[in-house]
Amino acid sequence: MSAMIECEGVSKAFGGVIANNEITLEVPEGRITGLIGPNGSGKTTLFNSIVGYHPIDAGSIKFEGREISDLRVQQIARLGLLRTFQQTRIYSKMNCVDNMLISVPHRTQTYRAMFSKYPPEVTERAEDLLEFVGLYEKRFLISGNLSFGQQKLLEFAMALMNEPKLLLLDEPTAGINPTLINGLIDRLRRATSELGVTLFVIEHNMPVIMGLADNIYCLANGRLLAHGPPEKIQNDQRVINAYLGAHYYLDSD
């Protein structure tokens, strides 16, 4: 089992706010890794740093052993490292199938391919993936008219369409109703087990992430607080303090 992402001492500050302070972590291949932490602890900043959304101040980020901290967003995406957004982002005036079709991998696209049509197997894969997330019947609807939860599922399906090696998911279950959440978790697991996509997931829903991830990192105030399997994190006093506030724990004790 090799590490897909290796962050080494990654720091990022916005003015006086140190969002990430020397974070070192690893995302192993073929697994689901979780990233938790209170609001403002620097989780999304770390995601943004990894996908090249902004330059980092110090440290190194390696993807499959290759330094990517100096690459731009599109180049990193073409390597097979993709992210979804906390505020769902889809192409809202296009229908679901078109959203899927344009999400095909662009790794080796030539100028000629810009003017080509999609072969039937690509359309078929798009429809299969839409069925995978349960949107097949709505595939011809304008995606912006779907409910928020459905848009999230669509964004997830679009990411899978891109055949990424690694997918960073920023709060995949936020805003989704409890029934759908179970379906989504099932899809996430199967994306890893059946489609071979490594996942790195930010999540606030503790039962979800504890059940989903093999391995969890916890951030607080821009620093790495704890790291380990779910059971260990669950019982880690520092994590409980960070999430609930130390006084809360003391009061109830």
């Binding site: 996908v51 967003v73 599109q74 995406a77 073409r78 993709l82 992210r83 957004f85 982002r89 889809i90 192409y91 809202s92 005036k93 296009m94 344009i102 999400s103 991998p105 662009h106 790794r107 679009m158 891109n162």
Partner: peptide, 11 residues
């Protein structure tokens, strides 16, 4: 519809 998303998807 969303140029930033398009960049993020590698287009």
């Amino acid at each position: 519809d969303d140029e930033e998303k398009a960049e993020g998807m590698g287009i």
